[in-house]
């Protein structure tokens, strides 16, 4: 055990990650997942195992915002994730080969790792007219999803599009876009958000690496460690809500004082997510801190059900 620990430290150092940096990440992940501090070393071990689990990332009707969000991970950095934590065998926006050679990568890993790879999906699936609105290599997204997803150990839907339909499914949903679950009838773990915080993506993967199983989820398939509480209940401006202190306009003394954005349309009271506690971009900010109401971007059908966005609930 002590040898192994030593080697973990060495490997971290080789990667330019100080042990202190790395343990900080492990602490954040453990805390995000609601684990006791004693789990911190185990998280570190899980993240540095010699066998990197194969991951296939499928992109359907999406905007690549979820991939960009993943690139913003800082503990661990994305290069550590790619070179040392998982084996990302297919990801169109990042992989070296194109065309036939890229398709080869997909089919090699799906064949060799059938039942063992993690499939991450961003984007919903256009189902109208036999799925003709989205094609890769002459195949429809619908066909690709039906072929690949059932062969995976687990399907993680990253972003509100793959989880619940999202942008393409917005009324009047011209392409018949559906979530992965609805389009092909399989159970998925959903990490919604537009895009979701990378710490919630990485946290879900770590849960799998650490416990060999996926995290506990709510009835909408969302991991409880990230989506178990309302934004409203964790908001730094909550005391202003309780005191009845509201900002009436973006240019007001109350807005300058950081009062509650409820009257400007904040959807925090109807949205389950950990934005106020985890924040985005290494804890830099989140929408309400930036003076803008929450738009409820991790809730199913929020584009239709929670809009117009500047109208109070």
């Amino acid at each position: 055990m002590s040898d192994r620990k030593g080697s973990v430290e060495q490997r971290l150092e080789q990667r330019g990650v100080t042990r202190r940096d790395f343990m900080k990440f492990c602490t954040i992940v453990s805390a995000t997942m609601g684990l006791a501090p004693s789990f911190v070393p185990k998280v570190a071990e899980a993240l540095t195992s010699t066998q990197r689990p194969p991951v296939v990332w499928l992109s359907f009707a999406e905007c690549t915002g979820c991939t960009e969000a993943l690139l913003r991970t800082t503990y661990p950095w994305i290069d550590t994730l790619l070179l040392d934590t998982v084996s990302l065998d297919y990801h169109e926006a990042l992989m070296a080969p194109s065309g036939e050679a890229s398709e080869k990568s997909l089919h090699e890993t799906v064949t060799q790792n059938s039942g063992k790879f993690i499939c991450i999906v961003d984007g919903s699936i256009p189902t109208a007219d036999n799925g003709v609105y989205g094609m890769i290599g002459g195949k429809t997204f619908l066909g690709i999803a039906k072929d690949i997803c059932p062969k995976a150990l687990a399907v993680l839907c990253v972003g509100t599009c793959s989880a619940y339909g999202g942008v393409p499914a917005m009324a009047p949903n011209p392409t018949g876009a559906k979530s992965i679950q609805d389009a092909i009838g399989i159970k998925t773990v959903n990490i919604p958000g537009c895009p979701p915080n990378p710490i919630n993506m990485v946290g879900t993967i770590v849960n799998y690496l650490l416990f060999g199983k996926l995290p506990e989820v709510d009835q909408l398939g969302r991991p409880l460690f990230a989506y178990g509480k309302l934004v409203h209940d964790q908001c730094q401006r909550r005391s202003h809500f309780e005191m009845g202190e509201f900002a009436p306009s973006f240019q007001s003394e109350e807005a300058q004082k950081g009062y509650c954005l409820y009257e400007l349309g904040c959807k925090g009271p109807e949205t389950y997510n950990n934005c106020p506690t985890v924040k985005f971009n290494d804890g830099t900010s989140w929408p309400v801190q930036g003076g803008h109401p929450c738009i409820g971007c991790s809730e199913p059908d929020f584009w239709d059900k929670l809009s117009p966005f500047y109208k109070p609930i």
């Binding site: 973006f250 300058q256 971009n281 830099t284 930036g290 003076g291 803008h292």
Partner: peptide, 30 residues
């Protein structure tokens, strides 16, 4: 990832910042 943080200071997050508004910006306390 560090450069993207720059946008989050006045943009609240990146990607898809959320501090614009028709009429200006909202980041009063930043």
């Amino acid at each position: 990832a560090r450069t993207a943080r720059m946008m989050a200071v006045f943009g609240a997050k990146n990607p898809h910042p959320q501090t614009l508004a028709v009429g200006g910006v909202t980041c009063a306390t930043d």
